[in-house]
């Protein structure tokens, strides 16, 4: 079972990202859970959302304490949130940032494996909004392969209707542009 934690700010769609990831996994015939961090939601405040994906039915109702993958939708969170908290040994942080990995490491002190993509730029260029939640799913597919691009299509189209296609092309561009940096 793989556990994923999304970090974002209220309104950036972290919860939607988690939901779409779980739905894509379920569409592939896998088992999955997605849930928000439960509580009052405030626009702009740091929020988290969680996903579990597995080959067998998932029965635990525990919170996610030790994720395998952390996805950060907003690079400004690195200054106020320890995104590596609980990250498993060998786990990876997938970060939306215009900076390269060495600069990110120097500034944030992240020690884990790192994958970077300029998701906000891709989102602006593709959809004319700086909201990178679906874009970053392309990075998740590239880095982990726990869900496939084709299984994201149904959930994204159902969720976004007429603008689903644009979200999918942002996703594909992120898939192409994501860079993985070991240690």
């Amino acid at each position: 079972m793989i556990e994923i934690r999304f970090h974002g700010r209220g309104g950036q769609g972290a919860v939607t990202s988690a939901e779409l990831t779980a739905q894509a996994a379920i569409e592939e015939g896998k088992f999955a859970q997605a849930f928000p961090s439960f509580g009052p939601e405030r626009r702009g405040a740091p929020v988290m959302a969680f996903v579990r994906v597995g080959e067998a039915p998932i029965v635990t109702r525990e919170k996610v304490y030790e994720p395998d993958i952390v996805i950060v939708l907003d690079p400004t969170l690195l200054k106020i949130v320890n995104v590596e908290d609980g990250l498993k040994n060998g786990g990876i942080v997938i970060l939306n940032t215009p900076k390269d990995a060495s600069e990110v490491r120097r500034e944030s002190g992240i020690k884990a494996r790192l994958a970077t993509v300029d998701g906000s730029r891709i989102a602006v260029e593709t959809m004319r909004v700086p909201i990178a939640n679906t874009t970053m799913l392309g990075a998740l597919v590239k880095v982990t392969g726990i869900i496939s691009m084709s299984c994201l299509q149904g959930p994204i189209k159902r969720r976004f209707g007429p603008i689903g296609e644009k979200n999918l092309s942002a996703c594909s561009r992120a898939f192409e542009e994501t860079r993985i940096v070991e240690e």
Binding site: A18, I26, F35
Partner: peptide, 12 residues
């Protein structure tokens, strides 16, 4: 049904 830990979970 348990609030949040069941009501707000997406699952198959």
């Amino acid at each position: 049904l348990d609030g949040f830990i069941m009501s707000h979970v997406i699952e198959p």
